[in-house]
C-alpha cells in the first residue's frame, strides 16, 4: 500500500517533470527556429545589399564579349584586369587628374573648414557675448533651408567674383557648415568649464587652451568632421558641374558621370565598372579603417557629404 502511494506520487512527479521538460523543449525549439529565421532574413538582406558591389567588381574584370553573353556568368571565366589599366589611360576620363583635383580640393577645404569650425564652436561654447543665443538660433534656422535655394544666388555671386573655373569656387562657398559648428559646440560644452578657468589661472591663452585641451578632448568629433567633409568633396556633383566643369578643375564624380554618358551606343560596361570601382575604393578604405568615426558622426547627422 505504502509502496503504491509513493510509486504513484513518484510517477506523477515524473509525469510533471516530463511535461515541464516538454514545455521547455518546445520553448527551446521555438527559440532556435526564431534565431534561424533571423539569420536567414539578415543573410538574404545582406546579400541583396552586397550584390551591387559584387556585380561591380565581377563586371569590371570581365572582357566585353563575356559581359555581353546573354546569360551572364556569376563568376568570371577569366580574370581580366586590363580594364583597370585602361581606366587610368582613358582619354575621356583623365582619372589621374580627377584624383589630384579632388584630393586637393578635399584637403584644402577640410583644413580651412576645421579651423573656422573650431574657432566658431569655441566662441559659442565658451565665451560670453551679447546676442550669442540669438545668433546661434539664427544659424540653426538656416539648416532648415534646402541648399539648392542658396545655389541660385551663389552661382551669380561666384560669377561676379570672377571665380568661375577655379579651385577657389570649389572650396570657399562651403567652408562654413552650421551643422559641424553645432556638433563641435555640443562636444566642447561637455568639457567642464573649470578646465578653462584652471587654464586661465595657469596663464594659458585662449588659443593655447584650445590647442592643448579642447582639441585633444574633442578629437573623435574632429575626425568625424574631417571624414565627412572629405567624403563630401569626393561625392559632390552638382556645384562642381555648374561652376568648374573644365578639365583642369573637374572633380571625380563629375568626370565619372560625363565620361560614360555616350549616346545610346554600346557602353563599355566593364570599363565603366572598373572606373566606378576605382572611384569607390578610397571611400571603402576610409570606411574600413575609420568605421567608428564615420558611424559616430553620421548617427548624429543624417547629412550625406
Amino acid at each position: 500500500m505504502k509502496d503504491n502511494v509513493t510509486g504513484s506520487s513518484a510517477s506523477v512527479k515524473t509525469m510533471r517533470e516530463r511535461d515541464m521538460q516538454k514545455v521547455s523543449a518546445t520553448q527551446k525549439i521555438v527559440k532556435i527556429c526564431v534565431q534561424v529565421a533571423l539569420y536567414l532574413f539578415l543573410g538574404v538582406m545582406a546579400l541583396i545589399i552586397l550584390f551591387p558591389f559584387y556585380w561591380m567588381l565581377v563586371s569590371s574584370v570581365k572582357t566585353m564579349p563575356e559581359y555581353s553573353q546573354s546569360i551572364p556568368s556569376i563568376i568570371p571565366h577569366e580574370w581580366d584586369f586590363h580594364n583597370y589599366v585602361e581606366v587610368f589611360q582613358n582619354e575621356d576620363l583623365l582619372l589621374g587628374q580627377l584624383f589630384a583635383n579632388t584630393l586637393f580640393v578635399g584637403v584644402v577645404s577640410t583644413a580651412l573648414s576645421l579651423v573656422i569650425t573650431v574657432l566658431s564652436a569655441f566662441a559659442f561654447a565658451r565665451l560670453e557675448f551679447k546676442g550669442k543665443n540669438l545668433l546661434f538660433a539664427a544659424l540653426l534656422a538656416t539648416m532648415m533651408i534646402p541648399g539648392e535655394l542658396f545655389t541660385i544666388t551663389n552661382f551669380q555671386t561666384v560669377h561676379s567674383f570672377g571665380w568661375m573655373h577655379t579651385f577657389t569656387v570649389l572650396i570657399v562657398p562651403f567652408l562654413v557648415s552650421v551643422f559641424y559648428i553645432y556638433l563641435l559646440k555640443q562636444n566642447f560644452q561637455q568639457v567642464p568649464n573649470e578646465l578653462y578657468l584652471a587654464a586661465k589661472v595657469d596663464g594659458t591663452t585662449d588659443l593655447k587652451y584650445l590647442w592643448k585641451v579642447m582639441i585633444p578632448l574633442a578629437l573623435p568629433t574632429l575626425i568625424s568632421i574631417t571624414i565627412l567633409k572629405m567624403m563630401g568633396s569626393w561625392n559632390s556633383y552638382m556645384w562642381p558641374r555648374l561652376v568648374a566643369n573644365d578639365d583642369a578643375h573637374r572633380l571625380i564624380t563629375n568626370g565619372l558621370r560625363t565620361a560614360f554618358t555616350s549616346a545610346d551606343g554600346v557602353t563599355d560596361v566593364p570599363l565603366q565598372m572598373a572606373a566606378v570601382a576605382v572611384v569607390s575604393a578610397p571611400l571603402f578604405l576610409v570606411f574600413v579603417f575609420l568605421r567608428k568615426y564615420i558611424m559616430k558622426g553620421v548617427s548624429r547627422s543624417g547629412i550625406k557629404g
Binding site: 556633383y237 558621370r257 565598372m273 572611384v279
Partner: peptide, 9 residues
C-alpha cells in the same frame, strides 16, 4: 559610404 552617382551606374 558610396558615391551615389557611381553606384547608380
Amino acid at each position: 559610404v558610396t558615391n551615389s552617382i557611381a553606384i547608380g551606374m
